[in-house]
Nucleic acid binder design. Structure first.
Lengths: 128, 128
DNA sequence: ATTTAAATAATAACAGTTCCTATTATTAGA
DNA sequence: TCTAATAATAGGAACTGTTATTATTTAAAT
């Protein structure tokens, strides 16, 4: 993979946040330092970075988000914030093993997303 | 919610399979008994059925699938088949409780998807 | 410096989904 | 049973997120 300034910027942007940004968010940020970068370039590089296991692609409902954190971890999603937070639960590996054995499946990954309301939104006030 | 023949057909189709069909697949099936049903009608009704908790919407990468099984359960996805299979792991409720307490989150749901290769595809032969 | 192929910007194409509008069908009430 | 009110529909346009195309630019090997 040949060097490109665009890819470096895109990589740095993903690594600069814990917010699991969308391609469009990355695009907006990238334009600040490189005003005529194109959205296609952002998508192409996010895919390449994923293929090289430099970042991870995760799915939030129907849209793709990108995560620099390649450690095995789960996500917590607040239905009010919409934002996703990284969390650690200890059971991932054990769960994988159990399913592997029980279902004769060669499990390579587990995606666990907890959906609910964070402490800011779990009282009665509701956004929107 | 007023009765409609279309909605009844759509509901029956989702309830007739374990394959977590996409909207388009449901549309194809529905056309057999009602040739000029429209795709918009399929989407509208799948959403309504979801809102009424008659079916569940699940996401597979970037596309929506529909599941009649409202029981708390996990999914197993074969990267070769692409198909999703329902499975049961015992830890869901415990996981929810742990995260609830540890992160002060009001968890309403957990989505767990195991990704790997089923017994048909976990040897060396590879599709496509 | 020249050459070669990878990467780019710009934009068209695409897939999945939602929205719009004139028409049709369900259902409550006369 | 007929009628009126309005929810649901078909058909298609519009929208959103993503991928593909192409002429041009750029990294980097020679």
């Amino acid at each position: 993979m040949r060097y490109s300034q665009q890819r470096e910027i895109i990589r740095d942007i993903v690594f600069s946040t814990n917010s699991h940004p969308t391609a469009d968010w990355v695009y907006g940020k990238a334009k600040k330092s490189m005003p005529n970068i194109s959205l296609g370039t952002v998508y192409r590089n996010l895919k390449q970075l994923t293929d090289q296991h430099i970042i991870k692609t995760i799915y939030d409902g129907t849209i793709a988000r990108y995560d620099w954190n390649k450690e095995s971890h789960d996500h917590l999603k607040c239905v009010d914030c919409g934002e996703m937070v990284d969390i650690q639960t200890s059971n991932r590996e054990r769960l994988k093993t159990v399913v592997n054995d029980k279902h004769n499946f060669d499990i390579t990954d587990v995606e666990i997303t907890f959906i609910g309301k964070c402490h800011k939104h779990n009282k009665k006030e509701k956004k929107e």
